Computed example of a mutant assay.
Amino acid sequence: MTAPTVTPAPAAVPVPAAVPVPVPAAVPVSAAVPVPVPVRAVVRVRSDAAARDLGRPAVLRSAVPHRPGGTERGGALIGRILPAGVAASEAFDDAAPAPLFLAEAALMTGRRERRRRQFATARACARRALAELGRSPAPLLPGPGGAPRWPDGVAGSITHCDGYRAAVAAPAARYSALGIDAEPAGPLPRGVLGLITDPRERAALAALAAAEPSVPWERIFFSAKEAVYKAWYPATGVWLGFRDATLGLSADGTFTAEVRPPHPVDTDPRYEGRWLTGRGLVLTAVARPALSP
């Protein structure tokens, strides 16, 4: 499932000396580069008590000021829609140093500087989330389909968009799958809605828009399907199209989805998640509890 391109990528700029360079053939790819904790980032593991406080409004008022860098006042923005036991880290820019492991840096060879910085910051967020679980830093390399391969015993998800990068992680014994997505809180490009919805979903979105026209319902819908896919694919290895999942949004900040894979898969096709908007962003999250042994 590929997100539509909203804006063209900027032209490449010279690579600063601090940005990792391609890996020489003679250097072991397992060598690690220390990862400092940026000041402009936040790590938070939701406690069971905090998880009970999910009655807050799903839509943050537009009066909340947008500050370049830093974190949302009151804690991690993504943490507002995560259940207990999920570690989260986020950043709102790429200003802080975010060194990569050599194997990760090699993946960015030839990529534009903007993409390299996004990648590095998102990986730094992932390492901070893993540290909250007591895990040592390790390269997060892509597996089949491009999704990051998390350490054994860990479920996780990474997202980034203009002005935001985040990662979440949890013990796989507690959550078998996680999926998060971030999008700019604006309208979808023309023609995209018809590609990702069926008539019933479009009717439901129209009703929501009529009741609360200031909420970017179409973008929330798109992001929620992305979050479902990010939880689904690493667990099953089965590709999905946008119409292979039927999704229902609620104005209370929740959503449900039912996946209809192209062939039978031995997993529960139903997903539940939460959404939130604020600081010009749409955030969505899915956390599937692990089955009891």
Rank of each mutant, 00 (worst) to 15 (best):
Y175C: 08
L54N: 15
V86H: 02
Y271S: 04
R61T: 13
D48I: 11
L133G: 12
L188D: 01
A11E: 13
E212G: 04
T2M: 15
R44A: 15
A290H: 04
G191F: 09
S223F: 05
P262C: 05
P213T: 03
A51Q: 06
V29D: 13
V265A: 09
T197P: 09
A172K: 01
P20I: 04
A49D: 13
R46H: 02
A26I: 08
A51P: 03
S292R: 15
R219Q: 13
Y233W: 11
A211P: 02
P14S: 12
E132Q: 11
A169Y: 00
E226G: 08
E201N: 03
A25Q: 06
R274V: 05
T2L: 15
A88K: 03
P68W: 01
I81R: 00
A32R: 07
A177G: 07
V19K: 01
P16A: 10
P187N: 09
L77I: 03
L208C: 12
V13G: 09
F222I: 06
R149T: 15
A11K: 14
E258C: 14
R190Y: 01
L283V: 02
W275G: 02
A18N: 08
L100N: 02
A63I: 14
D244C: 10
P184L: 14
V228I: 15
F92E: 06
A12L: 11
H66V: 15
D152Y: 02
V19S: 00
A96L: 04
R40T: 10
V228G: 06
A155I: 11
I81W: 00
T236P: 12
P234N: 09
P189G: 06
G74V: 08
K230A: 06
I158G: 08
A9D: 14
P213E: 06
P213K: 06
M1L: 14
A51N: 04
